[in-house]
């Protein structure tokens, strides 16, 4: 299953490294990364494959939220279909 990981907050060093390690620990494969800076707001979007993941997506979502708190950023994982549904006719 493909999902979208979004990381938003104030830019700082080492974010990609931390998130990548976090996902690798859970056997979540990163397929694509893009990042953008809007003013001082940092936004990173990853397309990931969770089919080999050790956890289901609900648990991954809780873990992401928790890990976001520890690094002072907002970290989410969502099934890609919510974006496909809302933004494609």
């Amino acid at each position: 299953m493909r999902a979208v990981v979004t990381v938003t907050g104030t830019d700082r060093r080492g974010i990609i490294a931390k998130i990548s390690a976090f996902l690798a620990e859970r056997n979540v494969n990163i397929e694509d990364i893009s990042q953008t800076i809007l003013g001082d707001k940092f936004a990173m979007i990853m397309i990931v494959d969770t089919s080999e993941s050790k956890e289901d997506i609900a648990q991954l979502a809780r873990d992401c939220e928790e890990m976001g708190r520890t690094i002072g950023m907002s970290v989410r994982i969502q099934h890609e279909d919510i974006f496909n549904a809302m933004h494609n006719v």
Partner: peptide, 16 residues
């Protein structure tokens, strides 16, 4: 396929 602005728009809709 959606782009990064679509993703951020959805997240803003939900969070803000």
């Amino acid at each position: 396929m959606f782009n990064q602005f679509d993703v951020l728009e959805t997240i803003d809709m939900i969070e803000k």
